[in-house]
Amino acid sequence: MRVDVRILRYNPEVDTKPHYENYVVDQEPTDKVLDVLNTIKWYQDGTLSYRRSCAHGVCGSDAMRINGRNALACKLLVQDAGSSITIEPLLGFDVVKDLIVDMEDFWDGYKSIQPFLINNDPPPSGRERIQTPEEREIFDDTTKCIMCAACTTACPITWTNPDFIGPAAIVNAHRFIYDSRDKGGEERLEILNDRNGVWRCRTVFNCTDACPRGIKVTRAIEQVKRTLLYNS
C-alpha cells in the first residue's frame, strides 16, 4: 500500500529549527512503522536518523511520536497507523538529530531510584532467594518495563518540568519497593517522597495510555503514593 510519511527532521549542524519532510513509500499493510523508516533510510534518504535495535518491541530503542501518540515504531503496524503517517521525536527532551532525543535526564531519573536489588543478607545456603507467586504478583506488572521513555515523554508534567523524576523511574522503583527479596524499599520511598518525585504526578493517565507494554503506570504510581501515606 502507498503510505505518505511526514517526518519532523532536524540536523543541528545545518538547521536552525526542525522542519517536516515528506516521503512516499510502498509497504505491506502488515509491515511495521519501523520498516517504513528503514525503507526511507535505505532507499530514499540515508541522512534520516533514528534509534532502533532489536526491532521486536523488547529493547525500547525506537519509541517516537507516531500520528501524535507515543509508540514503538517496531510494534505499530502500517495498517493500524494508516496510509498517512506523521512521525516526530519524543516530546520533552532535546533533539540530538531527527528522531533521536537526548535521554540523559531520563537515565538520571532512573539511576536515582537505585534500580538494582539491595539486600546485604546472604542468600539461603545452597539456593537462590525464593518468593511465592503471590509475592511476585504484587510487582509483576512493573517488571515489564523496557525503558523506552514512551510514558515519561507522554507526561505533560515532563514537558514543562525537567526536574520531575518521571513515570518510568517510579515504575522501576515500584519493581523493587514491592519485591519481597529487596531491602532498599524505605530508601527508595524516601527518594520518591519529594515534590519532584511521586507528588509531581497529577494522575493524568497519559503514561498508562502510552506504555507499549501495557503497564498500568498510573496505578503503580498511586500504589507508591498510598504506601507513603500509610507509612507517614
Binding site: W107, K111, I113, N193, G197, W199, K225
Partner: peptide, 18 residues
C-alpha cells in the same frame, strides 16, 4: 556524558506534598 549517580538527592519536601 553520564553524570554517574543520577540526580541530586531530594531536599525532603514530601511531607507537605503528601
Amino acid at each position: 556524558l553520564s553524570r554517574g549517580g543520577g540526580r541530586a538527592r531530594p531536599a525532603g519536601s514530601g511531607g507537605f506534598e503528601l
